[in-house]
Simulated scan of single mutants.
Amino acid sequence: MIALLVAPLYVDAFWLNLGGFAFAASIGAIGLTILYGRVGQLSLAHSFFLAVGAYGYLFFASPAVEGSWGMGLPPLLAVGAAVVLSAVVGLAFSPLSRRLKGISIGVATLALIFIGEHVLYAFPELSGGFNGRSVPDLTIGGFAVIGNEPAITLLGVPFGRPERLWVVAGLTLLATALLASRILRGRVGRAYIAVRDSEQHAAALGIDVNRTRSSGFMVSAVLAGLSGVLLALAFRRIVPEYWSLMLSLQYLAMVIIGGLGSIRGAVGGAAFVTALPLLLQRYGEAVPGLSSDPGAPFPPSVVAQLVFGLLIVVVLMRDPRGIAHQLTQLRARWRARSR
């Protein structure tokens, strides 16, 4: 908590923005690791629920003008409405999780991505079409919680949009991680694991398998919606092209690399997958053969995808429990040696 609050006083805007994006993505990764790692339900529609949260906030917070839809609600109320909308949409599609499992539900959820892309492009009044729409700042009583107004200076450091994004997204991630940890350590979390390991044994223990699966699907949708809201605020302008199948695959890479079912693994994987393309974009010129020029054979985005793919293969072959488990093992060995 101290590091989270003090870092904006010493870190420049690039790292603060990178951290804000990583914090926002981590919330969505926690939702996916609960669904896939604990409930055992593979979903490839995570980008769809991220888009529901992002465009839900955009619709509820934006005023209605000619050619654009909006309700003009107070931004904080719009955040709550967007998260509730994500929960409702997740609950509406939860019957998929009752009837299908494994790779079957993974393939079935692809339809949600195609439906979402069609809706966004078919209704430019909502999405702004190919050019996208600007996202209203998160304000409370005229104070921009994520924004630049009014100007604030703390200890001689201007506390602008990057600093506020870092703090708000970081605190939201911290609260989400604590809440998710309590859920997974409690009765609901044990029911998730029981259903994942054996539906027959779970039913014999009196667990409602269908209800448990639906619960996991809805929790994942809610966290994805909250993540989508923060990502929209971080981007400031969102376009339909971003919320594609590739984004869902990136979130799948986050939870596999970090460690399925691990909250810390989801946060670490999200930070890595989010930061690597941006770091390669900024410092890639120092790497031989890596260039961001148009037509370059190995642009940073391609190199990042190759690294993600290689890491997924290595992690699955070495330890399917991911990097989080490897770090836990190293820490245990270090403690044993220190004794």
Rank of each mutant, 00 (worst) to 15 (best):
F59S: 05
M1R: 14
H325P: 01
L280E: 00
L233T: 06
L280S: 01
V255T: 11
I312N: 00
E241M: 08
V188P: 01
N210Y: 05
V89I: 14
S291Y: 04
V313A: 10
P320D: 10
A81H: 03
V84A: 14
S181Q: 10
L276A: 02
S198Y: 06
G258F: 02
A151N: 08
L42M: 11
I152K: 06
A51Y: 01
V6K: 07
Y242N: 08
S26N: 14
M71H: 08
F60S: 06
G258M: 04
Y10K: 09
R182H: 14
R182E: 09
E66T: 13
R185E: 09
R133C: 05
L50A: 05
E117M: 02
T212P: 02
A203H: 07
Y283R: 08
V39A: 15
I103D: 14
L247N: 03
P8Y: 13
A175C: 13
G129P: 02
A108V: 05
F49P: 01
R196S: 08
G31Q: 02
T153L: 09
G322T: 04
G265M: 05
L311W: 04
L174G: 10
G206L: 06
E285A: 14
G186K: 10
A304P: 01
L179G: 10
L223G: 02
A191F: 05
M317W: 15
W166K: 04
L138G: 07
V303S: 02
K101I: 06
V88W: 00
L184T: 01
V167P: 00
I34V: 15
V79R: 09
A24W: 01
S94G: 09
L154A: 13
H201I: 06
P63Y: 14
P320N: 12
I105Y: 03
S244P: 04
G186C: 11
G90M: 04
P150A: 09
G20L: 08
